[in-house]
Design a protein around this nucleic acid. Structure first.
Length: 636
RNA sequence: GGCGGUGUAGCUCAGAUGGUCAGAGCGAGUGAUUCAUAAUCACUAUGUCGUGGGUUCGAGUCCCACCGCCGCCA
C-alpha cells in the first residue's frame, strides 16, 4: 500500500517547450516552477522522474524575429535557448532534459512521425484557401475574421493565401477521443477545461493543415521538402523525441506515456485534442493527464509586451530568493486558475507566512533548546493528552498534504502546511514552555520542544518541493541530514535525542516595501490608464446647490454660477454649458463639482471649481444628485 | 450569437443532495503573553449571500427573467 515501500514507479512530466521569439518572462517561469515543484515532490516520494522542458524554435515568427535582430535564425535560437537554460538554472529548476526543436535528432523524429501518420493513411494532400495570420501562424475562416479582415486572435491584418498543404485527418479521431475522455476523467484538468474540450469534440473536428510552403524555417516534409511541417506538429512531437522515440525503445518505453503535460490554458486544444489524435494515428498510448493552468496578471493587468509589464523573474530571485518566489507563486495563485502577481503580495506572504509563522516558530524553539538543553534535541517525556492530540493533528495534516499533492492541488497543499505551522504555534503557546522552564519542569519542557521540532521537521519536508533551500537549512539546524526523507513524514519521534541543533539567524528576513515600490512598478500606457484608488481620492467631489446663474458677456458657451458648498461656503464657478442650459433652469439644482481644483480665469471671470456633466455626442447633461443631498456633501 | 462558469464580509475565497450556512484566511479592533524576527495565541466585526420575481412550512442553496464579469466555441 505504501508507495514508498514498493518498487519504484516512474513519473514523466513535461512543460511546454517555449517559443524563442522573445526572452522568458514570469509566465514561462511560472509553468516551469510548478513543474519543478511536482518533479521534486515525486522524486522525494521515490519516483523515478524524468522532467523535460525545452524550446520551440521553428516557424515563421522565430524566423522573422531573427531577421529583425539581424541574426542568422539558428544563431538567434542558440542565444535565446541559452537564456532559457540560464534562467532555469537560476531558478534551480531540476529538469532532466532540455530539448530544442532545431536539434537534428528531433527533426529526424518529426519526419519519422509524420511519415508514419502518412503511411497510416492519416495525412493527405489538399489545397488550403483562406486567411492566414502571420504572427499567430493561424488560419482563419471568413466568418471568424474580425472587422476589416483582421485576426480574431491578435487583431492584426490577415493575408489571403492559397496553397497546397498536407492535411491530417483529425476528424477521424473524434469518436475515439470522446471515448477516451469518457473513460479517463483525469485526462484533462481542471474539469472545466476538460468540459471545454469535450464541447469542441462534440461539435465536430475539421482536418488540420499540417504543412506550410510560404517559408522554410522548419522541418521539411519527408519526400516533399518544399513543404515545411507546421510548428505545432513539430513542437508536440518533442514529448516523445526527447525520450528516445523511436530510436531508443527501451528508454522510451520506460517513460512513455507521459504522466503529466503541464501547460497554460491557451494551448489546451493542441495538447488535449490534436496531440492525442496524432498519438493515436501512430499507435502510441496517450499521456495520463494534461493539466492546463491559468494565467498570471501583474498588478491586476494582463502581461503583455506592449504594456511593458512583462516582469523579469530574475529581479525577484535576486531580491527575495528562489524559495520566496516559488512559495509565493503556489501560495497566492490558486493552481489551475488565473491569479495576480504583485511585489506587494509577495512581500506580504514573505513577512507573515514565512518570517512570522514559519521562521519564527523554528527560531523560538531553537532559542529555548539552546538555553535549556545545551543546543541539542531533548528526550521527550511521557505524553499527556494534549501532546497526543497535537501529534495526531499534525499527522492528519501530513496525510492531507500527501493527498493534495498527489492530486495536483498545490495551493491547497501549501495551505495545509501553513495550517500545520499554526498548530505548532498554538501548541507552543498553550504548553507555555517558558513557564515550564521557570518551574523546572524539564521533562515536560523536553516533550513540548521535542514535539515542536518534530513538527517543524515535517513542515520542512513538506515544503521541500516548493522551497528546497530553506527546507535543507531547517533540517541542518535540527541536526538532520539535509536530504529530506519522506518516510519520516508519517512517523513520530524521527528526531534522535541528543543530536546537536544550530540556532542561527532567523530563517526569513522580513522586508519593508518602500512606498514607491508599493505602487505598480511599471507605468501603464495611456490607452489603459488605470487609476489607483488613492489617486482618485485626491479629487474632492462635492454636492453643491446652484444659488444663481448668469451668462458671461461675450461668451456663447460660458455661464457664471454661484453655488452653495455647505461647510466650504459659497463659491463662484464658470461652466461651459450655456448652449445646453438656460441660467434660470439651473437655480436650485443639486449638482456635482470638483471642489479642490486650482482656480482659473475664463473670459476674465474666476472659476473656483468645476461642475461635472455627461457629454453625450453633441449633448451635455448635468450630473445631479438623485433625490438631492446637503450642499457640501462628500462624494466617493 | 451559442454553450459553460461566476457574482457571498474591505480583500481572496469555502459553502454535496434546500432546514445552526451566514463561514475561513488576510486586513482592522480588543485582550492575553513574553520563548521568539513588535513574533504568537484568544476574542470581536461589517454582509438585504448581484437584481427582481417564483416554488416551498422553509432558499446563497431549486426555477424564471434581468444585470455584471470570465472562459470556450462560432
Amino acid at each position: 500500500m505504501d508507495r514508498l515501500e514498493v518498487k519504484r514507479l516512474k513519473f514523466y512530466i513535461t512543460t511546454p517547450i517555449y517559443y524563442v521569439n522573445s526572452e522568458p518572462h514570469v509566465g514561462s517561469a511560472y509553468t516551469t516552477i510548478i513543474a519543478d515543484i511536482i518533479a521534486r515532490y515525486k522524486r522525494m516520494m521515490n519516483y523515478k522522474v524524468f522532467f523535460l522542458t525545452g524550446t520551440d524554435e521553428h516557424g515563421q515568427k522565430v524566423f522573422q524575429a531573427a531577421r529583425a535582430a539581424g541574426k542568422d535564425p539558428q544563431q538567434f535560437c542558440d542565444e535565446l535557448a541559452q537564456k532559457f537554460e540560464q534562467l532555469w538554472k537560476k531558478l534551480q529548476i531540476t529538469n532532466d532534459g532540455f530539448i530544442r526543436t532545431t536539434d537534428p535528432k528531433h527533426m529526424a523524429v518529426v519526419q519519422y512521425f509524420v511519415k508514419k501518420m502518412l503511411e497510416n493513411g492519416d495525412v493527405y494532400k489538399g489545397v488550403y484557401e483562406g486567411w492566414y495570420c502571420v504572427p499567430c501562424e493561424s488560419y482563419w475562416s471568413e466568418e471568424e475574421l474580425g472587422p476589416n479582415h483582421t485576426c480574431p486572435s491578435c487583431g492584426r491584418e490577415v493575408k489571403f493565401i492559397e496553397e497546397e498543404n498536407y492535411f491530417f485527418r483529425l476528424s477521424k479521431y473524434r469518436d475515439a477521443l470522446l471515448e477516451h475522455y469518457k473513460k479517463h476523467p483525469e485526462f484533462v484538468q481542471p474539469d472545466f477545461r476538460r468540459n471545454e474540450m469535450i464541447k469542441i469534440l462534440e461539435s465536430g473536428l475539421k482536418d488540420l493543415s499540417i504543412t506550410r510552403t510560404t517559408f522554410s524555417w522548419g522541418v521539411p516534409m519527408p519526400d516533399d521538402p518544399k513543404h515545411v511541417i507546421y510548428v505545432w506538429v513539430d513542437a508536440l512531437i518533442n514529448y516523445v523525441s526527447a525520450i528516445g522515440y523511436p530510436t531508443d525503445p527501451e528508454r522510451f518505453n520506460e517513460y512513455w506515456p507521459a504522466d503529466l503535460h503541464l501547460i497554460g490554458k491557451e494551448i489546451n486544444r493542441f495538447h488535449s485534442i490534436i496531440w492525442p489524435a496524432m498519438l493515436m494515428s501512430v499507435g502510441l498510448p496517450l499521456p495520463k493527464t494534461v493539466f492546463a493552468h491559468g494565467w498570471l496578471t501583474v498588478d491586476g493587468q494582463k502581461i503583455s509586451k506592449s504594456l511593458g509589464n512583462a516582469i523579469d523573474p530574475k529581479y525577484f530571485v535576486d531580491r527575495y530568493g528562489n524559495d520566496v518566489l516559488r512559495f509565493y507563486l503556489v501560495r497566492e495563485i490558486v493552481f489551475g486558475k488565473d491569479g495576480d502577481f504583485s511585489e506587494k503580495g509577495l512581500v506580504n506572504r514573505l513577512n507573515s507566512d514565512l518570517a512570522n509563522d514559519y521562521g519564527n516558530l523554528l527560531h523560538r524553539t531553537l532559542a529555548m533548546l539552546e538555553k535549556h538543553f545545551g543546543s541539542s534535541i531533548p528526550e521527550p517525556g511521557p505524553f499527556e493528552r494534549g501532546d497526543e492530540n497535537f501529534v495526531q493533528q499534525v499527522l492528519d495534516r501530513v496525510e492531507q498534504y500527501l493527498t493534495q499533492m498527489d492530486n495536483y492541488q498545490l495551493t491547497d497543499a501549501v495551505e495545509t502546511v501553513m495550517a500545520t505551522l499554526a498548530l505548532g504555534n498554538k501548541y507552543f503557546d498553550e504548553r507555555k514552555p517558558w513557564l515550564l522552564a521557570k518551574q523546572g519542569e524539564m521533562k515536560k519542557l523536553g516533550t513540548v520542544l521535542y514535539n515542536v521540532c518534530e513538527t517543524v521537521k515535517k513542515v520542512a519536508i513538506m515544503f521541500y518541493p516548493i522551497m528546497p533551500n530553506s527546507s535543507q537549512e531547517v533540517l541542518r539546524r535540527l541536526g538532520e541530514e539535509t536530504q529530506p526523507n519522506a518516510q519520516h513524514l508519517r512517523q513520530w519521534k524521527t528526531l534522535r535525542s541528543g543530536q546537536k541543533i544550530v540556532h542561527g539567524a532567523p530563517l526569513f528576513q522580513k522586508v519593508e516595501l518602500k512606498s514607491e515600490q508599493r505602487e505598480s512598478k511599471k507605468p501603464v500606457p495611456s490607452e489603459v490608464q488605470l487609476l489607483d484608488i488613492n489617486e482618485f481620492r485626491k479629487v474632492d467631489l462635492r454636492v453643491a446647490r446652484v444659488l444663481s446663474a448668469e451668462r458671461i458677456k461675450g461668451s456663447e458657451k460660458l455661464l457664471k454660477l454661484s453655488i452653495d458648498l455647505g461647510e466650504l461656503g459659497t463659491r463662484q464657478i464658470v461652466a461651459g454649458i450655456a448652449k445646453y442650459y438656460e441660467p434660470e433652469q439651473l437655480v436650485g439644482k443639486c449638482i456635482v463639482v470638483v471642489a479642490n481644483l486650482k482656480p482659473a480665469k475664463l473670459m476674465g471671470v474666476e472659476s473656483q471649481g468645476m461642475l461635472l456633466a455627461a457629454h453625450d455626442n453633441d449633448q451635455v447633461k448635468l450630473i445631479t444628485v438623485d433625490g438631492g443631498a446637503a450642499p457640501g456633501s462628500k462624494i466617493s
